[in-house]
Design a protein around this nucleic acid. Structure first.
Length: 429
RNA sequence: GGAGGGAUGGCAGAGCGGCUGAAUGCACUGGUCUUGAAAACCAGCAAGGAUUAAUCUCCUUCUAGGGUUCAAAUCCCUAUCCCUCCA
């Protein structure tokens, strides 16, 4: 959420900034509401003040043994007036909140302009796409022989799910373990195990709600719609991990907080009909190792570079060629101020595909989360900055390993760093 | 499944419907003292919001949501979470 103070004092600047990401809003409408809000709020608070002072007067009169009847008559209709003023104020505030909660974050000044992923800017390329003297296969075909099975998954559930058995399942698990160990042992993250079903407050905190409910799986606990408690399947580990520190004041000595967690992710892929229908690239359920950091404002962009580097270290260890792009303003996610995408080379698709998205949210999430620290210099509570990134998406990493390390006979070379996690298996055949 | 008890500031912990935004302790900040530190003493110290150039002032908040009342941390109802006991 953007700062309401900023929206009041500098709405034109907000408009210009959000235009960069093709988001426009009705300035006049917001200003009108804001003027109404101001008038109503002042009026309401005056009435409240009147009620408070009158009530105190009654208390004193009563204690002094005076007749309070005339005083009671004075305040007879005050309650109704106050209720009316309050409800009007509330309705205005709800309208303002609805607008503000639907406004995306302001892009950082270093974010390039552009409208779509075609305008993203490559900042780094690591490794060379392999040269194969045979016809390369895609991961669906490669995986088939080793236990990757979409038909069975469709029978059990529906499209966009997968079943893995045998060596593929083991490779998938090995990747997860390897990533977790790297981040815990070498990159300084604290491992976190978290709920996979979360409440609406958590999703509001990180920005998935209220705007993107259609992307989520929704469940009803204890009863049917209406009186049931609603929980959502997490679309990313970012949600539960970041929300661990919702409504807290973090000690300065503990900053930056660094958490890594392995979670499944569930996405309805509501807007993705027909895209990536084959294979593991776009699934309703997939695994991800997620990195989350919480930091002081002055450190956040330095830490974004660091966090992205942590994700890159996994790709490098797995010998997977990739490139790093900075997302243009038009391609930025709702809550992000700046995002690097890591795109891994997929020989089967002859293309780079996203495998990690590393973002700095500045105080956009923290404002919704009430996530703060006490700055000893100002002696004030200040909003923290949040960051996160995948380190990495496990399913897509599996795809990348299969396709990049395939050999002429259809076998898969297991990267060295995974051998110990694979019980000594060096080749999948 | 049943029966109780609880939730108060950064933490611990008081709190008769009105003088309680909240005692007290700890922590923290500043000062006195000291070569310095500790101790002692003195003072300050909740958050969020509105208004304002700023100060002032005002409003809201004692888990959450309702209700009673001129007035609620305090009374009533519901929910959530925690604890104890019984099955």
């Amino acid at each position: 959420m953007l700062s309401k103070k900023q929206l009041r004092s500098d709405i034109e600047a907000v408009e210009i900034a959000l235009k960069k990401r093709n988001f426009s809003f009705d300035i006049n409408q917001l200003n009108d509401l804001e003027n109404k809000r101001k008038k109503n709020q002042v009026e309401t608070q005056k009435l409240q003040n009147l009620r408070n002072t009158q009530s105190k007067a009654i208390g004193k009169a009563k204690a002094a043994g005076e007749d309070i009847k005339p005083l009671l008559d004075d305040v007879a209709d005050l309650g109704d007036k106050l209720d009316e003023a309050k409800s009007e104020l509330q309705s205005i505030q709800v309208q303002i909140d609805d607008i503000v909660m639907a406004m995306p974050n302001i892009p950082h000044e270093s974010v390039p302009e552009g409208n779509s992923e075609d305008d993203n800017v490559e900042v780094l390329k690591w490794g060379e796409p392999g040269q194969y003297d045979f016809e390369v296969k895609g991961h669906v075909e490669l995986g088939e022989s080793y236990g990757l099975d979409f038909e069975t998954a469709a029978k059990i559930s529906c499209a966009r799910f997968s079943v893995m058995t045998g060596k593929i399942a083991r490779l998938h698990r090995a990747l997860t373990q390897f990533m977790l160990d790297q981040h815990v042992d070498n990159n300084g993250y604290t491992e976190a195990y978290v709920p996979y079903l979360v409440n609406a407050e958590s999703l509001t905190g990180t920005g998935q709600l209220p705007k993107f409910e259609a992307d989520l799986f929704k469940t009803h606990l204890h009863g049917e719609e209406g009186d049931a408690k609603i929980l959502y399947l997490i679309p990313t580990g970012e949600v539960p991990i970041t929300n661990m520190v919702r409504d807290t004041i973090v000690k300065e000595d503990d900053l930056p907080l660094k958490f890594v967690g392995h979670t499944p992710c569930f996405r309805s892929e509501a807007g993705a009909y027909g895209r990536d229908t084959r294979g593991l690239i776009r699934q309703h359920q997939f695994e991800k190792v997620e990195l989350v950091q919480v930091a002081k404002a002055q450190d956040s962009y330095r830490l974004l570079e660091e966090l992205t580097g942590h994700a890159e270290s996994i790709l490098q260890a797995l010998e997977l060629p990739y490139r790093k792009v900075i997302l243009c303003a038009g391609d930025l996610g709702f809550s992000a101020a700046k995002t690097y995408d890591l795109e891994v080379w997929l020989p089967g698709q002859n293309a780079y595909r996203e495998i990690s998205s590393c973002s700095c949210f500045e105080d956009f999430q923290a404002r919704r989360l009430h996530l703060r620290w006490k700055n000893p210099k100002t002696n004030k509570h200040e909003l923290l900055h949040t960051l996160n990134g995948s380190g990495l998406a496990v399913g897509r990493t599996l795809v990348a390993v299969l396709e990049n390390h395939q050999q002429a006979d259809g076998s898969i070379r297991v990267p060295d760093v995974l051998h110990s996690y694979m019980g000594g298996i060096t080749v999948i055949n």
